[in-house]
Amino acid sequence: MSLGSARPAFSVRKARFIALCLLPGVVFVVLFTYYPMIRGAVIAFQQYNLFDLTSTPFVGLANFRAVLAEDRFWMALRNTGTWVVVSLFFQFVLGFGLALLLRRHFRGRGLYQAWVFFPWAMSGFLIGLLWRWMFNGQFGVINDLLLRTGIIEHRIGFLATPGWAMTSVIVANVWYGVTFFAIMIMAALQSVPRELYEAADVDGASRIRQFWHVTLPHIRPTLALIVLLRIIWILNFPDLIYSMTGGGPAGSTDIITTFLIQQVIGGDYGRGGAVGMLILGLLLAFTVFYLNATRFEKAR
């Protein structure tokens, strides 16, 4: 229902008003988002190195072939899987737990939320730095705590050892992301109509049965969407890794987006474009697959 529908005589004025209001936003997004993306798609098929811009011939699929032939790319792809799946799992489980604990009102809940949600105000870059210092192999507090409690006997070079480096960045990412899940899941829980629980109470269903048979089915579509958004987001989140390990040691914490940034910083825009296209393809394929698998449309 539009405001102006009762006054068709003003439709030209209305159209002009709409156009004027939308124009600035559209111009910005076209010029600084869509145009660069399209240019990136073109560059992906060109030989395009920042340090030799005298000739930028089209080279067909050469950039894609070069990227796909690199071990580092496949390693980054495998790491991306680990990074996304493990981070997501712990963020989800801990976030769900926190949401359930915060569901009922208690004294000081607002204050508690304000404090516990703070990691969120920080950038991934700063969080990476914070944990880089805490995971420091010599003066890091995490080594110290583990030594004091007798869990380890010698300091571990967390960020200098391939397996540990991945564990460390994931720990930092989980710490960061639990908040998001807690917030989203709390909102989803609040969307369950009270009457459903009252009905379940009348039927004598236990708390646990209520959770499985009332709560979960009701919030399942929302959960599916939250998880999808989160997967895309974690995949697109190179900031933390960038500042914590820079993808090292020896590429062991490189994910596909840090790999992309390295290509661009290295000046090879052709390959950077190709990696960008591959990421887009991956995102798209995954989203379609995921929506089909969770049958999101039907569930809704």
Binding site: L31, T33, Y35, P36, R39, G273
Partner: peptide
Amino acid sequence: LMLAFLVTQMIPLFIALGPLYLL
């Protein structure tokens, strides 16, 4: 238009870092 806006929320801007630098 809404779709075009929403799509940009799914794709990080740094995917076009190189072309943005050129621009």
